[in-house]
């Protein structure tokens, strides 16, 4: 009887041991099946983009693509900078000081996607409607952004996103 019991215990132990060992291996094998859907090496290689700022003139703005999204880079005039800094931050729908949104007052770098429902605001080219605050205007539902890319009027909940970027040299930035 007791040897039967021993055998049964040994059986159970081995079944559980084998089963758990198999389960661990199975879980490890599962990770690649999930990870393969993550951005692959070629997508990750395009995750950063370098932009040469030297050809951009005062008051001019360019649009470049970064990770499939448009990025607005504007060289602000002194007036535009002053306008952005004179605003009472507490009055803003999404309070944020201009100093927190730029690394260098002259250069404004923003993701050009309206934070409401994703349209691309107009205002990059001279002559385009750029809203009542001198920045950008989203034609889809009437959001107005100022010269710091902050939402001032309209349905958008947040300021235009500032992407991660750094100055590589005085005239070159790396985004992402």
């Amino acid at each position: 009887m007791s040897s039967d019991n021993n055998d049964e215990n040994r059986r159970d132990f081995l079944m559980v041991a084998a089963g758990s060992f198999a389960a661990v291996g199975g879980a490890c094998a599962l990770w690649p099946l999930v990870d393969q859907m993550n951005p692959d090496a070629s997508a990750k290689a395009l995750a950063t983009v370098e932009v040469d700022l030297s050809p951009i003139k005062d008051g001019q703005a360019i649009t470049i693509m970064w990770r499939g999204k448009p990025v607005f880079i504007r060289k602000r005039t002194a007036d535009e900078i002053k306008e952005a800094k004179d605003v009472d931050v507490a009055d803003l729908p999404d309070p944020q000081a201009d100093g927190d949104r730029v690394k260098n007052d002259e250069w404004l770098v923003l993701v050009g996607i309206c934070t409401h429902l994703g349209c691309i605001p107009s205002g990059q080219k001279t002559g385009e409607n750029n809203g009542e605050y001198g920045g950008w205007f989203c034609p889809c539902h009437g959001s107005h952004y100022d010269t710091s890319g902050r939402i001032r009027k309209g349905p958008a909940p947040r300021n235009l996103e500032v992407p991660p970027y750094a100055f590589v040299t005085d005239t070159k930035i790396k985004i992402g």
């Binding site: 690649p32 393969q36 090496a41 070629s42 997508a43």
Partner: peptide, 13 residues
């Protein structure tokens, strides 16, 4: 070849 070289674990899959 893109699967083999770039996709995560693509070569093994």
């Amino acid at each position: 070849e893109h699967i083999m070289r770039n996709v995560n674990w693509g070569d093994l899959i």
